Amino acid sequence: MTTPGIDVPDARGRTALDQKGRDLTGNPDVVIRDVELLATAWHVLRRTTYDYRHPAGHWSTQQRETYDRGDGATVLLYDPERRTVLLTRQFRYPAYVNGHPDGMLVEAAAGLLDDDDPASAIRREAAEELGVTIGDLEEVFQVWMSPGSVTERLHFYAAPYTPADRTSAGGGVAAEGEDIEPVEIPFDEALKWITDGRIADAKTIMLLQWAALSGPLSSR
C-alpha cells in the first residue's frame, strides 16, 4: 500500500512528508517517537508523538498537531514625507467564519516565501498586491505567529515608498483567486483603526506599533 505524500508524490509532487521533525535533537528533554501525516490537500497537517521531560524530572508522552504552510514575509510600506502607509484589503474566509462581520481585512502586504529568500519574496508580494517596486528594505524582526499549532515563521520588513514607486495597479494574482484592493491612509489614521477595530490583523498591528514606537514614523 502506498500513501500520497509519503511513498508516492501527492498533488504537489511531495514525498516523505512524514519525516519532518524525526531528526530533531536540539532539546534533550524532547524525544520524537512518531510523525503521522493527516492531510496534504495544499499545506501539511501532521500529528507528532513525543516524550517530554518535565522540570521535576518525570517523563510524559504527548501529541501535537502542527499545520505546516511554509514560512512567510510581510512589509509595512510607508511614505515618510506624506506620513501615509500603503496596506491591502481582501477577503479572509477564516476570519469571516470565526466572527468577523464581512471577512474583509485591512493588512500589510504579505505572502509565503515559496522558493524565494524572505527579501525577494516580499518584493514579489509588494509588486503583485500593491504595484510597488521596493527600493530600500529594512528587516524588523522574525516572529512565530501561532506557535501552538502553526509552524510558520514570519519575516517582518519595512520599506519607504513614494507615489512614483507605484509602478502598476497591484491587485494580486488573478489566476490564484486573489482580489486585493490597495488602501493608502495617513499613518495616524491607521493607528486609530487599530483602536476601533478596523485593523484587526496581528502582523499589521505589530508593524504599525513598531513604526509608532521606534520605527521611521515615530515621534522620538
Rank of each mutant, 00 (worst) to 15 (best):
V97R: 15
V106I: 13
A127P: 02
G111Y: 04
G135K: 11
I122P: 11
A119R: 15
S120M: 08
L137P: 05
E128G: 07
L137G: 01
R83L: 05
E125L: 00
I134Y: 01
A109P: 00
V85G: 13
D115A: 12
A127N: 08
A126L: 00
V85D: 14
V85C: 14
E139C: 08
E107V: 06
M104Y: 04
D114Y: 01
L130P: 03
F141W: 08
I122N: 13
S146K: 05
G103D: 13
T84R: 11
Y96G: 06
F141T: 05
L130S: 01
A121S: 12
A109L: 01
D114F: 00
A127T: 04
Q90A: 13
V97H: 11
A126I: 02
S146P: 03
E129Q: 10
T133K: 05
P101A: 11
L86R: 09
H100T: 06
A108I: 04
R123W: 01
T88G: 03
V97L: 12
V85H: 15
F91I: 13
N98L: 09
D102M: 12
V97S: 14
D115K: 13
F91K: 11
D102H: 05
L86T: 00
E128L: 02
Y93I: 09
M145K: 05
A119I: 11
D136R: 15
A95I: 04
V85K: 06
D136Y: 15
A110W: 15
D102K: 08
A95D: 15
E129M: 04
I122T: 07
L105A: 12
Y93H: 11
E129K: 12
E138T: 09
L113T: 07
V132F: 06
A119W: 01
L87R: 04
E139N: 01
M104R: 13
E139T: 04
G135D: 05
E107D: 03
V140L: 09
W144R: 14
G111K: 00
M145S: 10
L86V: 02
L87P: 00
L105D: 04
L86D: 01
S146D: 14
A95E: 10
V143W: 14
